[in-house]
């Protein structure tokens, strides 16, 4: 592979893990994050390890008015764009903005350009939390549900236009975002697994992936529970 990949939200553990997987395959990597200074050491690490071209660029997904300018400012439209941006807790409006509005608008702008070119892959990191709203995190879950639906529609629209859209539902992942939470070992993935799963999904032209396959089963069961029972469960 001598592709180029743009990672939006690259400072996250999952973002960096994805960068490692693509860089190992000799892809050129653009790391986009709000505080690019924090990523310089990681960029050096990627270059030393894989000898590939790595650039770091400032990007704030919440500044939706600047999305077009950001994309037009890149040296070239990348082959692969991965959106890892996400926020688990916080003020409801910010959680909604960060997990749905801003990523969807950004990928819409990417999609228009890839559609015009006739090639490309768009990867959205969504969440199993979007598969059904639960008391513990329904603001986050509903925004991710919206993002999942957005990616589904985008895939449908671009299927005949040469552009691939992948929805990734990682399940539990051991990251900074989940540090301190008690996560059950067998269904908790390492960031590296997510990175490898994203690379494989792009290479094999997959549509929707759960990083650990058991999550597909778990979420199918959770979706099948009738609402009359579901509302009484503590989830």
């Amino acid at each position: 592979m001598s592709k180029s990949v743009l990672i939006l939200g690259a400072a996250s553990d999952i973002g960096l893990a994805i960068a490692h997987e693509f860089a190992r395959e000799k892809a050129g990597v653009i790391l986009a994050a709000r505080e690019p200074g924090r990523l310089e050491a990681d960029a050096v690490d990627l270059r030393v390890r894989y000898g590939t071209e790595v650039t770091v660029t400032e990007f704030d997904i919440l500044r939706t008015d600047r999305h077009d300018a950001f994309l037009d400012g890149l040296p070239a439209l990348p082959d692969v764009v991965v959106c890892v941006v996400g926020l688990l807790t916080g003020q409801a409006e910010l959680v909604m903005q960060t997990n749905f509005n801003a990523p969807a608008l950004m990928l819409e702008a990417v999609a228009a350009r890839m559609e015009a070119r006739g090639t490309g892959s768009i990867v959205g990191i969504s969440s199993v939390a979007g598969d059904r709203g639960r008391a513990s995190n329904y603001v986050y879950g509903s925004a991710k549900a919206g993002f999942t639906a957005f990616l589904s529609g985008l895939r449908n629209r671009l299927a005949a236009k040469g552009v691939q859209v992948v929805t990734v539902k990682p399940g539990f992942v051991r990251t900074k975002m989940t540090a301190g939470m008690k996560l059950p070992g067998p269904i908790t993935a390492e960031p590296k697994e997510v990175g490898a799963a994203v690379l494989a999904a792009v290479e094999r032209k997959r549509d929707v992936i759960y990083v650990r396959p058991v999550w597909r089963l778990i979420m199918t069961i959770i979706r099948l529970i009738p609402e009359t029972i579901f509302k009484r469960l503590s989830l």
Partner: peptide, 11 residues
């Protein structure tokens, strides 16, 4: 734990 200090710097 220094396990996350896992970046290469120069070769």
């Amino acid at each position: 734990s220094m396990l996350r200090s896992s970046r290469m710097i120069a070769f």
